[in-house]
């Protein structure tokens, strides 16, 4: 009887869930509660290199979610990103990272992202293109409050949102919609970049 109880208890432990707490490694300063650097997932950039979001910590991030085969809204979002980038004063250029995250990881391979960056003249160090698996992408969209859905084999509908994050990875500003003025976005980027050492 004792043995059976032990066996049952032991099996409960096996079935129980392992705590994931050991995942968090704190580099120097602790990551704040609202920081996107709480997300542990790995991403791949346009050069095929694996990166964690945390590696972007310390810079102001300007982020948008797109897919490269998109014909309607995305080219305009991409143009917005390029325009925003061109408005960033020289002294802040190296304090800002512009990040384009793919919502279509099956089609948007690192090579495809690389080609896209070349076609769209977004090849400088300030540009990062990221992709991950479907699950991480969904989670990241949830953090950005970006909604998206695959509506046909090649098309997605998605929110047109450009987000600005401060050096700690906290959301500082969001620009919503197409063809809206990006003056506010640019001034927020400048404001946050000025705070970066």
């Amino acid at each position: 009887m004792k043995k059976m109880i032990l066996l049952v208890i032991a099996s409960l432990f096996i079935l129980g869930c392992n705590s994931k707490e050991e995942k968090q490694d704190i580099k120097d300063k602790p990551i704040t509660d609202l920081s996107i650097y709480n997300l542990p997932e790995k991403w791949t950039n346009q050069d095929g290199k694996d990166i964690e979001l945390k590696e972007l910590r310390g810079k102001v991030l300007v982020m948008v979610m797109i897919y490269t085969s998109c014909k309607s809204a995305c080219p305009r979002l991409v143009a917005d990103m390029r325009n925003i980038e061109s408005k960033i004063p020289k002294e802040y250029k190296d304090k800002v990272q512009l990040v384009l995250v793919s919502i279509d990881p099956t089609v948007d391979t690192p090579k495809r992202l690389k080609d896209f960056s070349i076609e769209n003249k977004m090849t400088g160090n300030q540009w990062v293109f990221l992709r991950s698996n479907e699950e991480n992408t969904r989670e990241f969209a949830a953090v950005l409050a970006v909604n998206y859905k695959k509506i046909s084999p090649i098309d997605f509908s998605h929110s047109n949102i450009i987000s600005v994050f401060n050096a700690e990875g906290e959301l500082a500003f969001q620009q919503e919609g197409l063809g809206v003025s990006y003056d506010k976005t640019v001034s927020k980027i400048k404001e946050e970049a000025a705070k970066v050492e």
Partner: peptide, 13 residues
């Protein structure tokens, strides 16, 4: 649901 954020009731669609 996993992809609750795939709904468009206003805005772009």
């Amino acid at each position: 649901t996993f992809d609750f954020n795939s709904i468009f009731l206003s805005g772009e669609s």
